[in-house]
């Protein structure tokens, strides 16, 4: 449906470099990256706001690299909803349809449908300047969807919302994705949003896509330290892997870990903090002893920092588990994780 091949574009001293990605019909693609990595510029480039310097963008097999935005049929929602302040809510939603001279009954049908899905029926007559953040985003979404674009680009539409509104909006977007079967490309810096919504995920760093694949691939098998750290894996080390018939053994910081990865030689490795069990009951491939350095309440989990002979590990422990154990600072704890939780990747530049 949407395919980017080696797209390169330079504006001032910032560049998008060699970006390739593809999204099938009905895919939900998340582009995850830190602020300033070029996510918005990538979306604008796809929408046609500015030309690519090299590479091609194609939609449904047609090369649109040189097509102006008004002929690309792409819905676009910015982080700040960018509603037209001189129109009402309804005027904003109708805007694209009016330009396309859709018949009045068709316009009405689409407005009713979108108002139903997004729950913005009561807002239609309102002045857009008096809407809350969540309401504005829904209206911006409705405005983009009213022209029934096959592709919808979302530029962090959830970022300005407070947590409950964000949660609700995620639900609305999923509902729209299901009901309208649109291909959605959504950029965000929030890995929770990425995990909830993304079927395919790309991770961006300084104008490049560092990893692009299915959500499972990216979240379970990051391909670099940057990706691993950005998706929230704090236990990242480098080590030396030796592969044998029953798997590999990696030595990192003087600690030997069994891994089911098959790489050998100098590798990077990472272990998700959620996958670490404290005081493990059953036999695990890797069991370590360490002393507790710090315990931080993160809301749904406790983040426990453990020091093993100078190597720091972080484990996320559920509140329930924490209540049972009550690890004090300095206490010695035993923790473990299975061999398949030790993921290794090639080191950058190796």
């Amino acid at each position: 449906m949407l395919k980017l091949q080696n797209v390169t574009r330079k504006i001032g001293n910032f560049s998008l470099i060699d970006i390739s990605l593809d999204a099938g019909k009905g895919d939900y693609v998340i582009i995850l990256g830190p602020t300033g990595c070029g996510k918005t510029m990538l979306l604008e480039t796809i929408a046609g706001i500015g030309r690519v310097d090299a590479g091609t963008i194609s939609i449904a097999g047609r090369d649109v690299s040189a097509v102006p935005p008004e002929k690309r049929d792409i819905g676009f929602v910015y982080q700040r909803s960018m509603l037209f302040p001189h129109h009402t809510v309804e005027g904003n939603i109708r805007w694209g349809m009016r330009l396309r001279r859709l018949p009045a009954d068709e316009q009405q049908r689409r407005i009713d449908k979108l108002a139903g899905i997004l729950g913005i029926g009561p807002l239609l007559g309102r002045d857009v300047r008096n809407l809350s953040g969540g309401e504005s985003q829904k209206v911006a979404l409705a405005r983009a969807l009213a022209i029934e674009p096959p592709i919808l680009l979302l530029d962090e539409p959830l970022a300005p919302l407070d947590p409950p509104a964000r949660e609700a909006m995620r639900g609305e977007i999923l509902k729209i994705h299901r009901e309208l079967a649109a291909t959605i490309l959504h950029v965000t810096h929030d890995q929770v949003t990425a995990r909830v919504l993304g079927r395919k995920v790309g991770v961006m760093e300084r104008g490049r896509i560092r990893q692009f694949g299915t959500a499972g691939d990216v979240f379970e098998r990051p391909n670099s330290e940057f990706v691993a750290r950005f998706i929230g894996i704090e236990n990242v080390y480098s080590g030396l892997a030796r592969t044998s018939a029953e798997g590999s053994e990696i030595t990192a910081g003087g600690i030997r870990l069994k891994s089911s990865s098959t790489l050998s030689g100098g590798v990077g490795l990472c272990i998700s903090p959620e996958m670490i069990q404290l005081a493990p009951g059953k036999q695990l491939a890797n069991v370590l002893d360490g002393s507790v350095r710090e315990v931080a309440d993160r809301g749904s989990v406790f983040r426990v920092s453990i020091d093993v002979n100078g190597v720091p590990f972080t484990a996320h422990v559920s509140r329930c588990e924490y209540e049972q154990n009550r690890f004090g600072i300095g206490a010695t704890v035993r923790f473990g994780f299975d061999a398949d939780k030790v993921h290794s990747f090639k080191l950058d530049g190796a």
Binding site: E44, A47, G48, I49, P68, P69, E70, R72, I74, G75, F76, Y78, R80, M82, F84, W95, G96, L99, R100, R143, A144, I147
Partner: peptide, 18 residues
């Protein structure tokens, strides 16, 4: 006038003059 408003208008189907 935020240029992003113009960008949105473009994606909604308006040419530069419109």
């Amino acid at each position: 006038v935020d240029p992003r408003l113009e960008n949105v208008a473009r994606t909604l189907g308006a040419g530069p003059l419109k």
